[in-house]
Amino acid sequence: MNIIEVENLTYSYDKNEKNAVDGVSFSVPEGKYVTLIGHNGSGKSTLAKLLSGLIANFEGKITIFGKEVKKNTIHEIRKKMGLVFQNPDNQFVGSTVRDDIAFGLENRQVKSEEMDPIIDTYSSKVGMKDFLDKSPENLSGGQKQRVAIAGVLAMHPELIIYDEATSMLDPVGKKEILDITFNLRNENPKLTVLSITHDVEEAYRSDYVLVMNAGKLVLQGTPQEVFAHQEELRSIRLDAPFFFSLKQALLNRGISIPDEIDTEAKLEDFLCR
């Protein structure tokens, strides 16, 4: 079953300018971790806004959980969807971290006696349990992103959309949040994730990669398939993950590496043989 289906989606902010999203079609199957990559201005963030119903008046069709996204369906759809944006300041409502996580739960009429254990679980998962009684304003950018993510995870969404949600985290923090998300997906094989990111290493770990350029979808496939197109990716200002760059650099220098060497660990063993 497809959780997201997008057909021929087109949108422009201004009739006189070229389309920010231009005839895009793709689908995201249930239980998959899909990454969407592209350079600044490629249309990724516009696509995120379209999917979350923040922009209406588009052409084409978006279907999420089997329902077409429209004014009268978006609230129903959002109940099962968690959104985390790049700048968490735009998302805070509570005066403490605890209130902020509780806000979403209150909206879903979770009973107050059930709330504390949920808040404890998710704040400790993202490493922010010690900060529950602090004011979000006094947190660093990366800590705010952790809180925003905890708030979304606490609501047990069936679909998570990240729009550059870990851009302010340090590499270890970034990996932690990715591990948490991958673990949640492993615990709940129905959890679907669409992550809009610049982090090619995250794309390398995902199930499926979509690549956007100038509003169009230009490549899609498994990480192995997509990152084999290094020249094409470079021409649209995207890097390859470290593994692919190194493999290519070795190939260019006349070292022959068999195709079955497709992970960093295998490459280490191969080079040390």
């Binding site: 592209g38 350079h39 600044n40 790049q86 610049h198 090619v200 200002r237 995207l238 890097d239």
Partner: peptide
């Protein structure tokens, strides 16, 4: 302060 956060690799 984190001048490259959110920028694509080329930028």
């Amino acid at each position: 302060d984190e001048p490259t956060a959110g920028l694509d690799p080329a930028a």
